[in-house]
Design a binder for these strands. Structure first.
Length: 497
RNA sequence: GGCGACGUAGCCAAGUGGUUAAGGCGGGGGUCUGCAAAACCCUUAUUCAGCGGUUCGAAUCCGCUCGUCGCCUCCA
């Protein structure tokens, strides 16, 4: 298995240190709802997480929640609530979004505010070793003491200073020194420390959590490409200086960023679509397929066309999964192994989900061909299902069966309630029965009229080999059905309800 | 200004030195069906932004040009 390591700028063989893969992915700062850029990142790492387990790795997966920082303080202040209250609200919102997208949970979600002792310990250690200094109640990291600072983002201290981008903190020794501990300002939440009351700076919380929950050396550290500098660069500087061990993480994995129109979707630009908004228009499976249709390191542009196409791809998969094998398992059977091999080969090559999907869609075609040719495909179907559900994390919900009466099979489309009033189903069934009679009498015009009128009410009628199938995309009102019956001169006789 | 990524059919998107350039969406034609739906078959890039170069051979390597984007400040 090969992975692209940002640290080396190339793919390399994936060899974790021990039996258990130690994986850390940067989590959220909960001060507002997550947008689909976050969804993209967490879907990608979810697929990586799932694939590692599919390949029989044990994984210990940690993701932080940075529940104290400038933005949280600002936002809470504006809303007149505590930072804790705000952070809890959006942490819950975050978990709800992850669940909706079928993103598997990490093993541990440490919160910055609950890890202050470890954070203080690391800062103290850095001061002792000369990698940090306190100044006016704050503590800064001394970047000059790290000879290889900039190795992840491939830039030098000189080039950073040249851009006069280094800002703030008159008390800093070097413009690029960054805060490990920020002195408390009046009215802000703060914790006691050897340097006075204050709160942790950005970067240090991830470092402390990694060391505490995963040890000195991680196997995988992941996040969006926008975190390479300064966040991950600084994490490396802190951790390696504190432990004296290199590398802090063997493999650095970074996902490309989601674009919306011309720009990156981000909280600061304000051009965002929240996960909740996206889920109002598209299914979770479609959002997942959209994300994994391209390579995780490439940027991806959000567009309605792409999401609609993803929705159609989901339909195609669902269709293949739902198809009934008519052979009873007898005779020749379709062999899915070649496709499973292709799938694994693609995923082994730096999680090439786009190529892996191609293998699955080739298998879909094979299954459909087998079905048309009367060849058994049930085993192949199960094989496909395991890859799609276990690794890609799709749920592929199917329409739920409601009833099967008089040769009319009724089902509720995904997202439509399955409990429907008997008075409604009676009327629909009566109309469908009328249509069946018309078909038998070859009165095609009237049969089609009934089908079209029902479709207008959200009731789809299809004729299959197994008989007529009714799918409720929405549930029509009794009144609208009554009007339709009057219009079509169909009586409800025999369907008293 | 520095660093980096990218430009493949109508759209999304793999491929990154050598058989017919994956897969999906959309379009066109056909099979099946009374007609639809689903499915299947055929079709939709003699060509990979442009121009040079290396090579027996390049979409794939090198150079230049044009265009797009990201990071360098908070960000998944």
């Amino acid at each position: 298995m090969k992975v692209f390591n940002t640290l080396l700028g190339k793919k390399e063989e994936f060899l974790p240190q021990g039996d258990e893969v130690k994986m850390y992915v940067c989590g959220v700062t909960p001060y507002s709802d997550c947008h689909i850029g976050h969804a993209m990142s967490y879907i990608i790492f979810d697929v990586i997480h799932r694939y590692l387990r599919f390949r029989d790795y044990k994984v210990r997966y940690v993701q932080n929640i940075t529940d104290i920082d400038d933005k949280i303080i600002d936002r809470a202040g504006k809303l007149g609530i505590s930072t804790h209250e705000l952070a809890e609200k959006y942490t819950n919102s975050y978990f709800a979004d992850m669940d909706a997208l079928n993103i598997g949970r990490a093993d541990i979600y440490p919160r910055a505010t609950e890890e202050i002792p470890k954070i203080v310990e690391v800062i103290q250690g850095l001061i002792t070793k000369g990698y940090a200094y306190s100044a006016q109640g704050s503590v800064y990291f001394r970047v000059r003491n790290v000879t290889d600072y900039g190795k992840l983002s491939r830039r030098s201290l000189e080039s950073m200073i040249a851009m006069e981008c280094a800002v703030g903190g008159e008390e800093k020794e070097h413009p690029m020194d960054f805060a490990l501990w920020k002195v408390a300002k009046p009215g802000e939440p703060s914790w006691a420390s050897p340097w006075g009351n204050g709160r942790p700076g950005w970067h240090i919380e991830c470092c402390a959590m990694c060391l505490k929950y995963l040890g000195d050396t991680l196997d995988i550290h992941g996040g969006g490409q926008d975190l390479i500098f300064p966040h991950h660069e600084n994490e490396i500087a802190q951790s390696e200086s504190f432990t004296g061990k290199k590398p802090f993480a063997k493999y650095w994995l970074h996902n490309g960023l989601l674009q919306l129109g011309e720009d990156k979707m981000s909280k600061s630009l304000g051009n965002l679509i929240t996960i909740k908004e996206a889920l109002e228009k598209y299914s979770p499976d479609a959002i997942r397929i959209f994300v994994i249709s391209s390579h995780y390191r490439s940027p991806l542009t959000y567009s309605e066309d792409a999401l609609e196409a993803a929705e159609r791809r989901v339909d195609r998969l669902t269709q293949a999964i739902s198809r009934q094998d008519q052979t009873g398992g007898k005779g020749k059977a379709l062999d899915a192994e070649p496709y499973r091999k292709q799938f694994i080969e693609a995923m082994d090559d730096d999680f090439n989900t786009a190529q892996a999907l191609a293998a699955l869609f080739n298998l879909v075609r094979e299954i459909n061909q087998a079905g048309d040719a009367g060849i058994s495909f049930e085993k192949a179907q199960n094989n496909l299902l395991s890859m799609v559900q276990e690794v890609l994390g799709l749920k592929l919900p199917k329409p739920q069966k409601i009833s099967d009466v008089g040769g009319i099979s009724s089902r509720a489309a995904v997202g439509t309630p399955t409990v429907i009033l008997g008075t409604v189903t009676a009327r629909v069934n009566r109309l469908v029965e009328e249509r069946i009679d018309c078909r038998e009498a070859k009165n095609w015009q009237r049969a089609d009229e009934i089908r079209n009128k029902l479709a207008e009410l959200g009731v789809i009628v299809e004729d299959t080999e197994a008989g007529t199938v009714v799918t409720y995309k929405s549930i029509p009102s009794e009144g609208s059905l009554d009007s339709l019956m009057v219009e079509l001169c169909v009586a409800l006789s025999g369907y008293a309800n």
